[in-house]
Structure formats: C-alpha cells, structure tokens
Design a binder for these strands. Structure first.
Length: 847
DNA sequence: GCAAGGTC
C-alpha cells in the first residue's frame, strides 16, 4: 500500500484535520518528535487504498540569517550587509523539524501540504518540500508527488472539499516571502548595527544597549511620537458658546445645545447673545423621536481581543495573547489567532451557547436568549484562517487565575453578545427658536438593552428626562449667557488606538503586532503609563525626529506598504524575484548610505538630550595606560570609559562589577575588577583590558582571569584551576577568591558552580594534585568556626575525593537556570573528562 | 547583540 504524508502548520491543526479526514478513525502514534504528533489512518486517494500520515511543523521551519563571519559587529561594516550572502538556518534547532519531516517522509509516495492558506503558509510548503526532498519516494517537485490543499475554514465540508480538489503549491507567493525575509534582514540589521555603534560610543547616559531599526517597529514608534508632537505643538484656542437654559412649567431647567455649537470670535458671539437677550421665551419648532441602536459586536478576532484587553482590562497585547494561548491549550477557548469576524455557516452557535447556560455569571442571560431564540450574528469578515474566538467549555472563576478569568469572562460575554439583539433606545429631540437662533434639547430613553445586558460595561445610562411639550409652545428662558471655553490638546496614544493604526496601515500582523509594541517598550523608546497610554521617551523622540530630518521615509508607515507592493509583483507573477529584490535592496542600500553620511543631523538632537561619554559616569578603577581613573558608565550596556585615552572598555553584563582589592593585571597594569551575578550566580575576576583585548591566542574576547593562561599570574587558570568541568567538554573549574567568604569554584565556560567551604578564612589551590587529577585544595577556618572533623582549623585535600570535604562541597548550576538540579558531588556520572593537567596546558600554550 | 514572520 502506498503512503501519503500530510503536513499542517501547527500540531493543533494536524489533529483537527486528521479527525475530519479520517472520520475520527485516526490513531495518534508516538512520534519521534516531542513537538509534533503523527496521526495515521487508511483511506482512499486517487482511487487506491492509501496509508495516510498527518503531522505538522511549528510555523516556519527555517529562518534567514547571515553566515557567521558577517555577524561580527566589530569587523563588518554594516553596508556590506546589503550585498553579502545570506543563509537559511533551522528556525528552532532544538525541535529538529527538518530531520523529523525527512524521517516521516521515508517510504511515502505523496506529500499533501495543509499549511495555512496565506503567503507565509505557501513559503512553509517549500520549506517542507526541501526537508523531505531526499527521503520521499520520487521527485518532490513533481505534480504527481506533491499536492497543495486549499481550505478556507476548518469545517468538515471545507476540508473534505479541499481534499478532493488538491492543487499545486504556489511558488511565486513563496518567493515573495523569501524576498521579504531578505529585505527585512538586510535593512533591519544594517541600520540597527550602525545606529547602535554610532550612538553607544558617544553618549554615556543612553539607557539602551541596542538602538534598533525595523520596517515595522520604527513606524510603530513613529505613531507614538507623532501624537507626542501633536500635543507639544498644540496651541489652545479660545471659543465661545451661547448657553441658554429654559424652565418648564413644572419648574425643571433644561440646558439647550446651540445649533452653531461654538464661535471663535467673541464679538460675533456677543452679537448672537444680544439677539437672544431681546427675548424672554423660546418657541418649540419641532419635536422628533427616532429609534436608535447601539449595534451588537461582530464575532471576536485577535486584533479586537487585544484592543479590548488593553483598553478595558488593562492588559498589554503581549500578556493578553499569552493568557489567550494558555486558555486555548487548556481547552477553554478556540484558537486565539484569527483575523476572521464571521461564524461559518455550520458553526454550532446554539451548542456553544448551551455550554454557558448554567453559569452563575451569565447563565440567566443565556437561558433567556435560548428561550427567545438567538439573533442572527452580524456578517463580519471571513479571512479564511480560523473561526472567531469563542468559549469552548464552561469555566468557574475558581478554575482560573485572575487575568485568565477576566479574559475568559470577556470572550464569553462577547460571544453571547454577538447572538443577542442590538441595544435600542428612543432619542427625542426638541428644537427651539429664540429670535433667529436655533437650539435643541435631546433626551434618550432605553427601549431594549439587548446585548448590553451581558456586556454590562456598555450599558445604557439612566433614562433622560423628556419634557412634555407641544409644537409652537413657548417656554420661558431661565438664563442666557456667553460661556468661554478652550480647545484642548489630544492625549497620548492609547495602546488600543496604536493597534488600530497598525492594523489600518498594515504594520505587522495579528501575531506580530504585540511583538512590535513590546519591542519599542523594551528598547526604551516608549513607556506604558496609566490607562495604557504610550509616552515616547527622549530616545524614542530624538530617533524619530532624526529620521524625519535625514530621510522621513524611514519612519513613514507607507514605507512598509510600498515594499509590500513590490513583493506583490512577485507573488502574482508579474515580476521576477531576483529583479525585485535587486531593485529594492539597492534603494535601501542608497538610503542607508545617505543616512550614514547625514547622521550628524540626528546626532545634533542626541547632543541636546544626552551627555557625552567623557562627562558621564563616576570614577571607578585605574587605567593601565595613563594611570588615571576611568569612569564607570552605569547605563546599559555598562562600560568603563577612560576620558584621557578616549577609550571605552566593555564589561561583563547583568551582574555587579567591583574593584578587586586594588590588584593589577601583570600584563597591562589595569586594575583588576570582579564580576558577580550574585552568590548563586557565576562570578570571576577580570582585567578590563584583557576582557576586551585577549592577551593570549587561546583566550577569547569577553573572558576573565579564570580563562587566562598567563604562566605565573596568581589569578590565572593555571594558578586557580582545580579540575576540568564536570559537565561541559572544554571548561575548567577555577577557584574564585573574589567571592570569599562565599567561596566557590566556577566553570570558565558553562554555568556549573561548586559552592564550598562557606565562611572559611582562606582557600588556596595547591601545586600538588590528587590521584583523580584534580588539584589539591587547602582550606583554613577560624578555630571556633571550623567545620572540619575533629575541630581541625586547616586541611588540604581533594574536593572530589576527600571524605571530610564531602559535606562542605555542593555542585550547582549558576543563577536561576534550573531549580533543584540534582546536586551531585564530585566529578559527576557518565564519562569523566580527563583532568586538567597544568603542565600539559602550559605546554600547549607555549608550543 | 540586529528584522519580521510563523508557532510553543
């Protein structure tokens, strides 16, 4: 029997498709891949009996990057990123998706691609084909081997129709995605590297370790800064309103609305007022009543969910989507990433509704709705991806954590609301004439709360008073006056408004919108304030203003759509992939070069807002070249700067840097420092010069004294190394004396640390070595605090073999990497690495 | 260390 491999875009879809296509007969087999299951059944394909295997990928299989040597920021001029080669790398190497696909395709005769029906999905088709090319029977690019299923909804009808109507994967669409990837990579990385290096080397109080640029994130920031500028340049204007209040016979005072609304010239407004003052009564010229409706919502999609989560629940989109995903995995809601706002015809609305009828919160509304019959949901938009977001099973508040419950509560109420009636109210407007001027009074009264019964936060307020008056009736004017008002500036952009702007301009997708917003927050370009309003930081503002001075297109949202127009030429086959790519890359290479040439214009803005490196930071340790104190720049990334030598030295990050007993490096005279990520984290002494300029061939940039092979220095690995690492193949466990009295050995390559001899007054590494190959270690305690047997204050032995040491030595993993990682003593199980031989290592160095 | 796009 021949076999067909089918591949979906994600595991959940593979499971759903397998159930539909096999009529529930599919068996889920234990697969070789922990992320992607394989569902199998036997069925008919091309009028023969075929073994079907349905599995999936997890999104893109590959991602684009530069070859390793182009990722050296110090040696590669960013402009070369516009012409250097690129390569596809496995997107998530630990998932081993290509190997998995290749294995599953073995002995298969057909490949049927069920990836999402959009351009990205088309591109993944070709990633899958490439992965199975060498293992599948026959030529994967042949139309008799590979087929593409085109479906627009995950419904029985649609999926089965797709199966009998298979087509071919669309190479043009896939290529357009290849082009987008390459452009985004080249443009983003070139600008990011250039900006980062340029500004970081100049200003000390720039609170940013990365000054990124991207075709989506930068226009996103642009929206926030635009609003900031609108606020800053806003000039309040005075205006005047003629305010008239009438009094009914029962003595109620009604404030009227002026038909002209307002007037920007005081003299003119006064003229109107004078005309009114001549009258004591207003005459009713019209009374009209109109039924109005607040429409029920459309079915819920991702973007609307994120908007409401931000504006109504105070949850950022990133956080909201994390919670939505959790609810989805637990089976409470349907797949939360969808653009669709319309229920498919065979969506079981009643069934989904019935699941909610016993809820203590909205069960009554649901039962009423079921009794009265549901209202036909609004039409909405069918993007052909996934059904709208709906509740899938009932939940109690106690089943979920607070935020999960609030989101579930919203999703469920929204679902019920889409099947409810509109909220209707009667709006009555009375028109009054005073002299030549027209005024109105409007009162609204509720007719039917409709969906607002369940979406209570949108509920209609109190019924408004409607006076019982007749046409042509005259009513006395109680008061008339001129009210002076001022136009007010707009407020900062709310996150919810930003999402709307991004959606409107096609910046990002439903899945990537939260990522872009998160990016501009994490890069310190904007901060999220109360009401989830986005205020740009000084850095964000000067960046955008800088682009506007040099090349405003760089920050315009239209830039993304212009590029996408080019890409569309590829996908619809009107233009050649290479030609479009060459043309667009060339445009951006020129833009980049122009930007570099004119960076001075942006720098002028930075100068005003930030302090130059030479005047930032506080005195720290001495420079080995000029003997003066260098300054410690605390802003990320932390650095040392010698203003006399005009040199900047990078430091190990994410820890504390301290002066280490005023010791000096014997090679360059720089004062030694100690770095520590806390008592349970990694730590080592280092020389700031050697850290940046490794002194020996076998030492790499970014390492401390515990990696230094200096033959005699007391801080080098030759003096303080105890044994080879118990876990990693190349590391050496070295004593870190700077951690005293929380003594520890730390691997100079990986996260292994061994805490030992706490509170000892002295720990030293001896010349002699143990039989196991590790160096002997001596320990001294204060006589009254000793932890050694028989009250000994001193002892020398092997930390791995000496029984008296065993309770004083504990292996751990640095920082919070793994909680409760099995503490084992000594050299670990498995295959012990050859012990470090100091002489051998020295010899290796001198050869 | 960088982009944006999938998805977990």
């Amino acid at each position: 029997m021949r076999s067909a491999l089918m591949v979906a875009e994600k595991p959940s879809l593979a499971a759903a498709l397998a159930t539909i296509l096999s009529d529930g007969r599919a068996i889920t087999n234990k697969s070789s891949n922990s992320s992607c299951a394989v569902h199998e059944w036997t069925g008919t394909f091309k009028s023969e009996s075929v073994r079907f295997k349905m599995s999936s990928v997890c999104g893109h299989v590959m991602s684009l990057d530069f070859p390793g040597k182009f990722n050296n920021w110090d040696r590669v001029d960013p402009v070369t990123l516009f012409e250097c080669p690129t390569e596809k790398k496995e997107a998530v190497p630990r998932m081993r998706i290509p190997a998995f696909l290749s294995q599953e395709a073995r002995n298969c005769d057909f490949l049927i691609l069920w990836l999402d029906c959009d351009k990205e999905g088309e591109n993944i088709c070709f990633e899958v084909m490439s992965a199975v090319e060498s293992s599948i029977n026959g030529d994967v690019y042949s139309p008799s081997v590979t087929f593409r299923a085109k479906f627009s909804a995950i419904t029985d009808k649609d999926i089965k129709a797709a199966m009998v109507n298979l087509g071919r994967p669309n190479e043009n669409e896939a290529r357009s995605v290849d082009a987008r990837q390459e452009l985004d990579l080249r443009i983003g990385c070139a600008f990011t590297r250039f900006q980062t290096k340029f500004f970081q080397g100049r200003y000390g109080d720039l609170d940013a370790s990365l000054i990124s640029y991207g075709p989506c994130q930068t226009p996103t920031l642009g929206f926030c800064v635009q609003r900031h500028d609108d606020i800053q340049t806003f000039k309040p204007e005075l205006y005047w309103v003629v305010g008239v209040t009438v009094r009914t016979l029962e003595g109620r005072e009604l404030p009227l609305d002026w038909k002209r609304v307002r007037c920007f010239e005081k003299d003119v407004a006064n003229m109107f007022l004078a005309g009114i003052k001549e009258h004591t009564e207003a005459v009713i010229t019209d009374i009209s009543s109109k039924e109005k409706a607040k429409p029920r919502p459309s079915a819920l999609n991702t973007v609307e969910l994120m908007r409401v989560a931000s504006a109504g629940l105070g949850m950022g989109p990133h956080h909201a989507m994390q919670i939505a995903e959790k609810l989805y995995i637990q089976g409470y809601i349907s797949y939360p990433r969808t653009e669709t706002t319309s229920y498919s015809e065979n969506f079981d609305l009643i069934g989904s509704l019935k699941l909610q009828q016993n809820s203590a919160k909205w069960g009554a509304d649901v039962r009423q709705l079921l009794a009265d019959g549901i209202n036909k949901p609004k039409k909405g938009h069918d993007a052909g991806d996934h059904p709208p977001i709906t509740p899938m099973k009932p939940a109690l508040e106690s089943d979920l954590d607070n935020d999960s419950w609030r989101l579930y509560d919203y999703i469920t109420r929204h679902f019920i609301a889409t099947l409810s009636k509109d909220c209707t109210y009667l709006s009555t407007t009375l028109t009054f004439k005073v002299g030549m001027e027209i005024f109105t009074y409007t009162g609204n009264t509720l007719l039917d709360p409709g969906y607002t019964g369940v979406m209570h936060w949108q509920a209609f307020g109190k019924n408004e008073y409607i006076p019982d008056l007749k046409l042509d009736e005259a009513i006395s004017i109680h008061d008339s006056r001129l009210v002076e008002c001022q136009t007010s500036p707009p407020d900062y952009l709310t996150e919810s408004e930003l999402i709307t702007l991004m959606e409107k301009h096609g910046i990002g997708t439903d899945a990537s919108i939260p990522v872009h917003i998160n990016n501009i927050c994490q890069r310190n370009y904007v901060t999220v304030g109360g009401g989830r309003k986005l205020t740009p930081t000084t850095l964000g503002i000067v960046l955008v203003h800088g682009y506007q001075k040099i090349d405003p297109e760089l920050v315009l949202p239209t830039m993304r759509s212009a590029v996408e127009e080019q890409l569309n030429l590829i996908s619809c086959g009107e233009a050649d992939f290479k030609a479009v790519l060459r043309h667009t890359t060339e445009i951006f290479r020129r833009k980049f070069q122009y930007f570099v040439l004119n960076i001075e214009a942006m720098d002028q803005l930075f100068e005003v807002s930030f302090s130059p490196l030479s005047s930032s930071g506080k005195a720290h340790s001495r420079c080995g070249k000029c003997r003066r104190y260098m300054k410690y720049i605390q802003a990320k990334p932390a650095r040392l700067h010698c203003s006399h030598c005009d040199e900047t030295y990078s430091l190990p990050q994410n820890g504390t840097v301290r002066i280490y007993k005023e010791l000096k490096c014997p090679l360059d005279d720089f004062e030694l420092l100690s770095w520590s990520a806390g008592t349970k984290g990694r730590s080592f002494p280092f020389c700031p010069y050697c850290f940046n300029h490794p002194p020996f061939r076998d030492m790499k940039k970014g390492f401390g004294c515990n990696s230094c092979t200096h033959p005699t220095c007391g801080h080098s690995v030759n003096s303080l190394g105890v044994s080879s690492c118990v876990e990693c193949p190349t590391g050496v466990l070295a004593l870190d004396p700077s951690a005293a009295p929380k003594w520890k050995l730390g691997c100079n390559r990986c996260d292994v640390i061994i805490q030992l001899f706490e509170e000892a007054t002295k720990v030293t590494v001896e010349e002699a070595s143990c039989e196991c190959g590790a160096q002997m270690v001596s320990v001294e305690y204060k006589q009254d605090r000793t932890k050694l047997p028989k009250g000994q204050a001193e002892m020398t032995g092997c930390v791995f073999c000496e029984p008296a040491f065993s309770s004083l030595v504990e292996k751990q993993r640095a920082v919070a990497a793994r909680v409760g990682g099995a503490p084992s003593r000594g050299r670990g199980g498995g295959s012990p690495k050859p012990p470090k031989d100091k002489m051998a290592q020295l010899a290796a160095y001198f050869v």
